[in-house]
Structures are given as C-alpha cells and as structure tokens.
Design a protein around this nucleic acid. Structure first.
Length: 691
DNA sequence: CTAGGGTTAG
C-alpha cells in the first residue's frame, strides 16, 4: 500500500468519510473497500463508532448479511449501531430482523432512544392486524417519555396503528399529540387513501390548513390520490392550480400523482399535458402515463408511450411490464403480449407476482389458455388476482371443468379466500360450459359458503346461465326479485337467451327495458328485430328497424381484423378493396362447395330484407369474418391457428361455416367477438353453439 | 454514527 493510502486507512476520521462516500454513492464496491480498510485497522484502540459506521453502511446499501455480521463483530455495541441496523432492516422491508434486533438490544440492557423508536414502529407497522408487538413498543416508548411528545416517535407510532388496522388507537394518539406537525397529518391522509376513505383524506387536509399548517409534497400527493379515488375531477383540477402556484409541481412524485389522478378521472389528455410539462421524469412517470392511457381505452397510445420510454433508455420494470400487459389484453394483442413476456424473462421479472398474474390474465384474454396455464402452474406463489385470472381464462373459452378444478384447488389451498370476481368467473365458466346445475348451486350458496354477497354481476351470470339452459322464465323471476335494480347487461343476457330459444314475448320485455336504459345502443334493437324476424313476425321486425331509423340509431358496421406480419388487416362486409380480393373470393367459393358436400346449409334466417334466397346466401358469404378467415387461410402456414377479432357478435351463419371449415382444412380458428371467444376445432366450437 | 409521512401495476 502506498504511504498516502496507508495514512488514510489508519485515520478513523478519514475512514468514516470513506464510509459516508460509499453510502452516498450507493456503491457496494466502495463500501466493501472501506470495510477492508476497517478490518486492517481492527485493534483495541479502534474508535468504537467505526463498527456503527459499518453497520450503517451495510444497512443503507441493503446488504443484510454484512450488516448483521458487522453488528455481531462490534465488541461494544451501542444504541447507535443497533439503531442503524434496525432502521436499515425496516427501510428495506425486513421487519422481522429489525424487531429481533430491537429485542436483542433490550436484552443487552441498551435503552432505545428517540432515533430507535421510529424505526421499530416502522417495522411493527407490517405486523399482522391487531398484533400486540406495536402496543408493546408503544408501552416502552411511553415509559421512556417519548410518547406522545416526541413528534418523530409519535408519527411513527401513529402510522403503525393505521397500518395494523387499529384506527381507534391511532385517532386517540393523534388527539393526544401536543405537537401535531405536517407529518402527523400526512400519516392520517395517506392511510385514509390506502384504506379507501378518500373523503377522510380531504377532510384531514383541511384540518391541517385550519390548524395553520402548510402542506408539503407528501400532503399534495395524498390529496391527488384521494381525488383520484373519489373521482373528484373538479376538486383535483382546482387543487392543481394551487399546486402550481406553490411550485409543488416541480416535484416528480407530485407530477406523477397528477398524471395518475387525471388518468383515473378519465382525462387522459390532461394527464398527458402534465407529463409533457415535466422537466424531469422517472420510471414512475412513464408507467403512470401508460396506465392513464390504458384505463381510458387508448391502448395504442399506452403502447406508444411504452415504446418511447424504452427508446428514452428506461428499463422495463415489473410495474411497467405488468401495466403494458394489460394494454395487450385490451388490444387482444397476443403477439405483443408474447413479446412482452420475452422482455419480462430478459429482465428477470417474469416471476414477479404482478407480472406473472398479468401474463396469466393477458394469455387468458387473448385466447392463449395453454400459455396462461404454463405461467400459472410454474408460479412459486399465487394470490387472489392470479387465481382469478386463471379461472377467468377458462371462463373465456367456456372450460367449466378446469375452472371448477382450479377453483377447488384455490379453496383447498386455504391461503387465498375467493372474492366476488372469483365467483363471477366460476359461474361464467359454468354457464358457458353448460354446467347449469353447478353454476346455479354456487350462486345460491355463495353467501353462506364464502360470505360473498351476490352483486349485479352475479345476477347477470346466473341469468345467462339459466337462459342458456332454456330457463328464461326462471331467469326473469330472479331478475324481478333481486334487491338492486337490474343492469343493462342483465336484460341483455335475458334478451340474448330469448332470441336463442325463440321466447319472443319475454324477449320483447327485455328489449323494452334495454331501450329505456340504453336508448342509443344499436345492438339491442338489431337483436330484437332479428328475434322477431326469426319468429316470422316480419311486420314487428320491420317496425323496430323503422324505429331505429326514426330515432337515428345506426347499426355499427361489422368489421373483423386479423394480424399478419406486424400489420392489422381489417375487413368489412362485402369488402372488395383488399389487394387479395380475387384470391379471397376464389377460396371462399371453393370452401362453400366443400362445406355443402359435408352437409352445410347456409343460415340466412336473420337476413331481413326481401331478398331471394340466393341473394341472401351471397350476402352472408361476404361477412367480414369470412373474408378475414380466407385471408388467414391464404397466408398462414398450415398448423398455425388463425385468430380473428370482430367488433360485433359473430353471425349465426359464419359460426356454422367456421365449424365446417375448421374440420375440412384441419385448422384451429379462434374468433374473439365483442362478447367472448369461439374456439373452432374439428367441426366444433368451444361455445357449444350458444353465445 | 442512528429517525417519521410519498408517486406507478395484475
């Protein structure tokens, strides 16, 4: 060692400075170099605080084992070295080592000071609800006179009581505090938001102001979160002005909270304005912007922001990837989703529970249930959302057997209790899979078995379930005696069922209700007129069409799309503009002959207008989904499943035809319509002809 | 030498 370095190593003050520098640079390498020097110095006349320095170093750098051994090698540990250890463990979400170190120092007869208690309370805050560890520390702090006068200790205790669900104790402590600073008010505000009581947050904010206090960035973030949670766009917008006047908007977290607030209040444009105005952004800013778009049905914009973030040098974090995966699920972008799965693997975040659950969800929603299973069964741990996503995946394809099996695994595992979404998914799977009895039983017993109160969604599921089984009258009875007002989707499910089973009178009732609740929706009018038409009630059917015209309700034009080589090909009915038009027409004509040879008859019963039968046939043969399928068959190599998306429900004739085609050309065809998936395979469809 | 309240996800 050169003399200068030797001199520095021998000087404890310089060594302490080196440790400080290592902490500041957050560099384990510099930290270890400083430690190596300290080890060479270890001798009886070493100043005792060097060990405390090292404990602090390793705690701050999040190197728990090194911190523990530094603490253990301290010949005369002080309250300072213990406090450094406890605070490091508490800050890095390791409450158990923190609390056991706290216990050890008590056993050694060391008295915790006003620096130790805040960290001990922070660790105790992650104890289970109503655990007695927090109150025990409270008793100690009381005995030593830190509570309720010391603001640091009191604030930490306050936060701990909120986080362990002891609201009464928290409020009492807050009342007793003689020095209520902004941090105390912030603890009230942030915890009220976390517990879903946004109005209490806002109330506490005004409490702070009335007490003459000034908010800081934390209060401001909490306020925006509360506005987001309660959808208070006007209040938040007003507050935005105040925030800018005070200069708080220069804080990255505040701007991030504003992006989130505007996004949650359905104002993606304002979220974008905040984002664009930021001079400094971090990964949270990018992620919040993605979420703001994704929550507002702007999946493409969300994805574009993600791509911008990547080209701006942002690493894909677990937060970012799970958020972008939701947009893939919304776009039905299986290929994008797969690409993101690869990104997750490369970034070693694919086993993060949020990312993995988002993958299960995405694969389930995009019609890749086998991939969803792969991710699901490989996961080391699962939570409520994971289970729900997997059951939801099975529900999408109507696989009631597997949905019930996974649901049963969830119950027997005993770790995660089902919630209302779980039940919606299981009953939906039963309904779509034809498990009428099982689904109905679950609905009837969910309150007593799982303590889940049936909501409108469950009623909608069960109406669908009974309707599918041809029990529309029973479904109608249930609708009439349900405690809450029936929703649009409920009447919609009944109308769909009535149409399927020719229950024209009941269908009319459902349709009338739908017209009241949702007068502009074209789908319901079309459904009613089709139902009347297929019952041979042409005059009424025509009347409904006329009404639509009179009230200016336009039928959404049907269109289908298919992805091929990174491009989306969109088809409309009777579309001739596509460059492959001739090939497509020729293939469809050929398929029609083959299908007819296998017993196919065109289903033209819903063609309303006075066309000759031949014209009707030609009309249904130009439906957008058939054009898209032909395009797929021409381009995609044999064996590759063809995935088509349609903006409306798939038509009856196309459904029938796709079953034949899947058998004739031995190809899996997956159609996602605006209601569900249809998985065609060997002359059959997963929906079992009910949708 | 040691301390409290903060922004994003399924």
């Amino acid at each position: 060692m050169r003399p200068a370095a030797e001199a520095m190593a021998a000087d404890p003050q310089l060594l302490a400075a080196a440790v400080e520098a290592a902490i500041a640079s957050r560099s384990p390498r510099l930290g270890r170099a400083a430690h190596a020097r300290a080890l060479r110095l270890l001798s009886p006349d070493l100043p005792p605080f060097i060990c405390a320095h090292l404990v602090n170093l390793y705690s701050k750098l999040d190197l728990p084992d090194a911190a523990a051994s530094a603490l253990a090698s301290d010949p005369s540990p002080t309250v300072v070295s213990f406090t450094a250890f406890i605070s490091g463990a508490a800050q890095h979400a390791r409450p158990l080592p923190a609390l056991s170190a706290f216990a050890s120092m008590l056993r050694l007869g060391l008295r915790p000071n006003d620096f130790t208690f805040p960290s001990a309370f922070k660790a105790a805050a992650s104890a289970p609800p109503r655990s007695d560890i927090g109150p025990q520390i409270h008793a100690l702090a009381l005995r030593f006179g830190y509570l309720p006068v010391d603001p640091f200790v009191s604030c930490a205790a306050l936060d701990m009581y909120f986080k362990t669900g002891c609201l009464g104790l928290a409020r009492r402590l807050f009342e007793e505090m003689p020095n209520r600073n902004v941090v105390a008010w912030n603890a009230v505000m942030t915890n009220a938001v976390l517990d879903g009581r946004p109005f209490e947050t806002i109330q506490a904010y005004f409490g702070l102001r009335e007490a003459g206090g000034m908010p800081n960035v934390v209060s401001v973030c909490a306020f925006f979160n509360a506005c987001a949670g309660a959808m208070l766009l006007l209040l938040g917008d007003l507050f935005h002005g105040f925030v800018v006047k005070c200069g708080f908007h220069m804080d990255v977290s505040v701007s991030n909270a504003m992006i989130d607030f505007y996004g949650k209040c359905r104002c993606a444009e304002k979220a974008r304005m905040v984002f664009d105005a930021m001079r400094v952004r971090n990964s949270v800013s990018w992620c919040s912007m993605v979420v703001a778009y994704a929550h507002n049905g702007a999946e493409e914009d969300a994805f574009t922001v993600y791509l911008c973030a990547r080209s701006a040098g942002e690493e894909p974090t677990d937060f970012m990837v799970s958020s972008v995966l939701t947009t893939c699920a919304g776009l039905l972008g299986l290929d994008l989703g797969r690409a993101l799965h690869a990104v997750a693997v490369r970034s070693c975040i694919d086993s993060n529970i949020f990312v993995a659950s988002a993958l299960v969800d995405m694969y389930g929603k995009c019609g890749g249930v086998e991939d969803a299973e792969h991710v699901f069964f490989d996961m080391p741990q699962r939570n409520l959302v994971t289970w729900n996503a997997m059951i939801g995946g099975y529900a999408h394809i109507g696989d009631a057997m597997n949905a019930l099996a996974v649901f049963s695994d969830m119950i027997t595992s005993g770790k995660t209790a089902p919630n209302y979404i779980t039940l919606v998914n299981v009953i939906t799977a039963c309904s779509r899979g034809g498990f009428t009895k099982e689904g109905y039983e679950l609905f009837e017993t969910m309150r007593e078995r799982f303590g889940i109160e049936p909501r409108t969604e469950h009623y909608a599921c069960v109406v669908d379930l009974l309707g599918r089984a041809g029990m529309e009258e029973r479904a109608y009875e249930i609708i009439q005696r349900m405690p809450m007002g029936p929703s649009i989707s409920l009447w919609g499910a009944l109308l769909g069922a009535c149409k399927m089973h020719g229950k024209t009178e009941l269908g009319r009732i459902a349709a009338e209700k739908l017209f009241e609740l949702d007068p502009q929706d074209s789908g319901n009018h079309v459904l009613l007129s089709n139902m009347l038409a297929s019952a041979g009630r042409w005059a009424e059917a025509t009347y409904v069409r006329k009404e639509m015209k009179d009230f200016g309700i336009k039928k959404d034009p049907g269109c289908s799309w298919i992805t091929w080589k990174n491009a989306v090909h969109v088809f409309h009915a009777k579309d001739t503009k596509h460059e492959m038009n001739n090939e497509i027409r020729a293939l469809l004509a050929k398929l029609k002959k083959q299908m007819q040879a296998s017993g196919y008859m065109p289903d033209t019963q819903y063609s309303l207008y006075d066309l000759e039968e031949e014209e009707k046939e030609s009309e249904v043969f130009q439906h957008s989904e058939k054009l898209a399928l032909a395009f797929g068959l021409i381009h995609m190599p044999p064996g590759v499943p063809i995935r088509i998306t349609k903006n409306l429900r798939i038509c009856v004739d196309c459904h029938r035809a796709f079953k034949f085609i899947s058998g004739i050309v031995s190809r899996e065809i997956i159609v996602r319509d605006n209601n569900r998936f249809h998985h065609f395979k060997q002359y059959d469809c997963s929906c079992k002809d009910y949708w």
